[in-house]
């Protein structure tokens, strides 16, 4: 079936608009779209979206992570194997993290990473035919915000929820950050790490994030103010 931008699409639908745009300029087709011969077919169920000038993708629901290059993810170190750490990021196989890809690490000066540690890292290599590879430094050799996350609380959620709360237009973090202090790292692989001053605040934060999954922006604001008032009432 023919589909156009903004439509609900199913796998097997095709979009002529993209083909026509592709004749004039370079087109970027993102997740959920696939070129076959002269047509662009949809491969996932969701909403067909476009960002100007020529980027197209399908917004779909997903829980299982498939590694993709350049994404920031949260993983758990499951094995130390010589020069590399094996990190579980939720994909089909574990990702490799070299001990040299930490800030200031040398062959003599190994970073202190133990099995069971949680790391916030960037996908350097992610291809369907190869083992994914992570790094904890940027291209200048600085760690930025990447590295081992100590203490805190890690939970899993759907990939959509992470994309939703990281969207600059989402009011969730805007309204929560004024209520009480906390730290948060959101991995594109559907894992969120949070750290607040007390157990009660951590639980409240986790509930606020998980509760936002199917809510609209207005409802999220209401949830946040409710949770904040409950929390304030119990503490005082």
């Amino acid at each position: 079936m023919k589909a156009s931008i903004g439509d609900v699409v199913l796998p097997g639908d095709y979009c002529e608009e993209i083909t026509v745009a592709g004749e004039k300029a370079k087109v970027i087709i993102g997740p959920g779209l696939r070129r076959e011969l002269d047509r662009v077919y949809v491969t996932k169920a969701g909403v067909l979206k476009k960002r100007n000038p020529c980027t197209y993708w399908v917004d779909s629901y997903q829980k299982r992570y498939v590694p993709s290059r350049g994404e920031n993810v949260i993983g758990v170190v499951v094995q130390k194997a010589g020069d590399i750490f094996r990190v579980d990021v939720g994909g089909s196989i574990t990702a490799a993290l070299s001990y040299l890809s930490f800030e200031g690490a040398t062959k003599k000066n190994r970073p202190e990473v133990q099995i069971g540690d949680i790391v916030y890292a960037k996908m350097l290599v992610a291809s369907k035919d190869m083992e994914p590879e992570l790094v904890c430094v940027d291209s200048h050799g600085k760690k930025g915000r990447l590295g081992v996350l100590s203490d805190g609380f890690l939970f899993k959620c759907s990939l959509n929820l992470v994309r939703k709360i990281l969207n600059p237009s989402c009011p969730l973090l805007e309204s929560l950050k004024n209520e009480w202090p906390f730290e948060m790292a959101a991995g594109m692989n559907g894992r969120i790490w949070i750290k607040a001053n007390s157990m009660r605040e951590t639980i409240a934060l986790g509930n606020a994030i998980l509760g936002a999954e199917y809510q609209s922006d207005e409802e999220i604001k209401v949830i946040c103010s409710n949770i904040a008032s409950i929390l304030a009432g119990h503490i005082s």
Partner: peptide, 10 residues
């Protein structure tokens, strides 16, 4: 469809 696995068609 719900799992987000790429499909050729439904």
């Amino acid at each position: 469809l719900n799992s987000g696995i790429s499909l050729h068609h439904v």
